[in-house]
Simulated assay, not measured.
Amino acid sequence: MDVNAIPHTPRPLLRTILGGVLRGIRRHQGRTLSDVADAARVSMQYLSELERGRKEASSEILAAVCEALRVELSDVLAEVGRVMMAQRVRHASISVARQTAATRASSPQAYALAA
């Protein structure tokens, strides 16, 4: 197996994960971007960019969006932490797969003995 065949997966940015969590909460509530943006007193475009991970949210904006979503900021941050941990585990699994593939490629006999 070609070690380079396993694609490198960069770790996502905090803003990307945070945006995904906010979008998930909003969608779970069945609310529109417009509704939440109005309640948070931010533009719909800005909220959309936050949800897509294209903008960094200030603490004030994040608090306003959480209030508009009627969720605790601490719960949102806890969910972000859970997602990051799950991605960390996946990243570690990919690293192990790469190391295993490298071992197989460099020494098939050594891999067979270790298995």
Rank of each mutant, 00 (worst) to 15 (best):
R70K: 14
G24F: 08
R15A: 00
T103P: 00
E72M: 13
M84W: 03
V76A: 05
A92R: 11
V42L: 05
I6C: 03
P10Y: 09
A40D: 01
L69K: 08
I17Y: 02
R23V: 05
R98Q: 10
S106E: 15
R41G: 03
T32S: 15
Y111K: 14
P7N: 05
R90F: 07
D38Y: 09
D38G: 10
S34L: 14
A86F: 04
P10Q: 11
V83P: 03
V65S: 03
I61L: 10
M84R: 14
D38V: 09
L77T: 06
R90H: 11
V21D: 03
A97S: 08
G20D: 09
M44P: 13
R70A: 13
E79Y: 06
S74A: 15
D38N: 13
V65C: 05
Q109D: 15
C66Y: 01
S93C: 10
M85K: 14
N4P: 00
S107M: 08
L62P: 02
L14H: 06
A97L: 11
G81A: 09
A114I: 10
V71F: 08
Y111G: 04
R52Q: 10
A101G: 02
Q29N: 13
H91S: 14
G24C: 07
S59V: 13
T32D: 05
D2N: 13
C66V: 03
A114P: 02
Q87H: 07
A86S: 07
L13V: 00
G20S: 09
D75N: 13
T32E: 09
A97F: 01
A114C: 09
L73F: 08
S34C: 06
E67H: 13
L22R: 03
H28C: 11
L62S: 00
P10N: 07
R23S: 13
